[in-house]
């Protein structure tokens, strides 16, 4: 069953449509979603409906700033520290760049969410059980004040290792680099804000799913 039964022409048309989505619509949407802080964006275009949705478990930009531990108090102090430790560990393992094509990534999106026709739950960015396979996070290489690189804004395309900002450490800048090929999304910190080592700074929405990410084409595999 599935894709093999479809007419070749039909598949070609789909792929053409997917190509155009990949080139134009999806990057723009990803950037928009990343920058806006919205939970979900849906766009209709002809027979296609594209919906991007954030996971519900709090990948909204964490608002913890350096120093926010001061708001903790009393007996409650211990448990939040443990959970923030877990969150912090996640930020230390930026998702590496995948090697699959843009097409495959969009196909993955398509099955998972783009072709959604009913109210069935879709969780393309679900990271509730681990890392988000569609997003990498640039983290701070030092303790200091963060400044984004001029010209790098939500929607900018970046490649792994591109400088996207800097941390001022006692007047000496240390580069913040893109952890993966992708599109710059929301910034989690304000320009000039104090950041700690390893702190999450900027989302980079991946153009390709990383190797090893769950393949929605073959559920259960």
């Amino acid at each position: 069953m599935g894709t093999d039964d479809r007419e070749a022409a039909e598949r070609l048309a789909d792929h053409a449509a997917i190509d155009s989505l990949a080139d134009q619509l999806i990057p723009a949407l990803i950037a928009k979603l990343g920058a806006s802080g919205l939970g979900e964006i849906e766009v209709r275009e002809g027979d296609w409906k594209v919906r991007l949705r954030r996971p519900a478990d709090g990948t909204t930009p964490p608002s913890r700033k350096v120093g926010d531990r001061g708001t903790r108090s009393g007996a409650g102090a211990v448990a939040p520290a443990a959970s923030s430790g877990t969150a912090a560990r996640q930020q230390l393992t930026p998702v590496g760049p995948g090697r699959q094509s843009v097409l495959e990534a969009v196909e993955a999106l398509a099955v998972g969410a783009v072709f959604e026709t009913d109210g069935a739950p879709s969780t393309p960015f679900d990271s509730s059980h681990g890392r988000d396979p569609f997003r990498a996070i640039a983290t701070s290489p030092a303790v200091g004040f963060y400044t984004p690189r001029t010209g790098v804004v939500p929607g900018s395309r970046v490649r792994t290792g591109d400088p996207i900002g800097a941390i001022d450490v006692l007047g000496v800048p240390t580069e913040v680099v893109a952890p993966a090929d992708g599109i710059v999304g929301a910034s989690l910190v304000e320009p000039g804000e104090a950041v700690e080592y390893g702190q999450e700074l900027v989302w980079v929405e991946l153009l390709s799913a990383p190797a090893g990410a769950a393949d929605p084409m073959t559920p259960g595999s």
């Binding site: 926010d68 531990r69 520290a81 700690e196 080592y197």
Partner: peptide, 13 residues
Amino acid sequence: AVRLADEAICIGP
């Protein structure tokens, strides 16, 4: 110390 602190900051690996 991090758990008891009013404020804590990660400074490196």
